[in-house]
Amino acid sequence: MSRPLPTPADLVVFALAAVLLAGLHVLAWRQAGAGPVVTARVETPFGTRYLPLDRPGTYRVRGALGESVLEVRGGAVRFVDSPCRAKVCVRAGWVREAGALAACLPNGVVVTLTGPGGAYDAINF
């Protein structure tokens, strides 16, 4: 009874798998090393998205009325524009505490900050 011996092609598959797994672990490790990532959960009538707050940028999300524009910078998120009249969401400004929330209700877009180590369980306003 012979031992299972890999063919050259098998060895190529093993090598590719090793590279893939190493890459995944390095990515996961780097994410863990960056500390707890506060994430903005963006709920819209068309589904939920997550924006990591350590990656600055401008994001457009589709809502009930149109497009809301969100900006992520310096570990905080804010509404830059929204197709509502009141613009309460824009005026609310930056949101940075885990557990805090910004919303454009007419457009049905709700941004909640989730993440460990928030100082507050909820924000009263």
Binding site: S2, P6, D10, A17
Partner: peptide, 28 residues
Amino acid sequence: VGIAPRGRGAGQHDGPGRGLSPLGLSLA
């Protein structure tokens, strides 16, 4: 890539198997 039914261990007379044995196929 093709399939080598029993890897390199069997069929010594056929020379080294070409293609993927069940080991590589299963991992992939």
